[in-house]
Computed example of a mutant assay.
Amino acid sequence: MTATTAPVAQARAAGKPRLIRWVLRLHRPALYGWAGLAVVLAVVLIALAGPLADAAAEGWRQYDACDFRGPCHYDQDAILRYKDWYNYATTALDVLPFLVAAWAGAALTGRELETGTARLAWTQSTSPARWLAVRLAVPALVVAAGTGPLFWLHHLAWAAGQGRIDTVKTWYDVFTFHANGPTTTALALAGLAAGALAGLLFRRALPALVLGVVFISGVWGLAQQLMPHLWPTVTSTASLKQGYPGSGITVEQGLVTRTGAHLPDPYCSSDASCHAVLAKATGYYSTYHPASHYWPLQLTTSALILAVTGLLVLACFLVLRRLTGPVTTAPTGKAAV
Rank of each mutant, 00 (worst) to 15 (best):
R203G: 07
A188I: 08
L299A: 10
V327W: 08
T90V: 09
R322L: 08
P97D: 13
V251H: 04
G163E: 13
R258K: 01
Y172A: 10
P232R: 00
L318E: 14
A101E: 08
H289F: 01
G221K: 05
L26D: 14
G191P: 15
W122Y: 08
Q10W: 04
G116N: 03
H27R: 00
L318V: 14
S273H: 11
G33Q: 05
L255W: 09
I216K: 00
A208N: 02
Y32M: 03
K169M: 04
A279W: 03
A307L: 15
A121G: 09
G163S: 13
D173K: 00
F177M: 11
A118Y: 03
A53E: 12
R61E: 14
V327P: 02
F215P: 10
A238H: 05
R204I: 05
L255C: 10
L314G: 11
G36E: 13
V100E: 10
H154I: 04
K83I: 04
G199M: 01
A194H: 02
V95F: 15
L153W: 11
T109F: 14
L156I: 03
Y172Q: 06
G218V: 11
A65F: 11
T183N: 10
T309F: 13
S236C: 04
A208F: 13
V138G: 06
W231K: 00
S286F: 07
A35P: 05
A188Q: 04
W295R: 01
S302N: 09
V40T: 12
Y294K: 00
A14H: 11
L24P: 06
P331E: 06
A6C: 05
R81A: 14
L80I: 12
P17H: 00
D67V: 14
T332R: 03
L99Y: 02
Q62G: 05
P139W: 02
A196M: 13
V219M: 10
T332N: 15
T282D: 14
L80Q: 09
A56N: 04
L278N: 06
T183C: 11
T301M: 09
W60P: 01
T126I: 13
G148M: 11
V337E: 10
D77Q: 15
T259E: 15
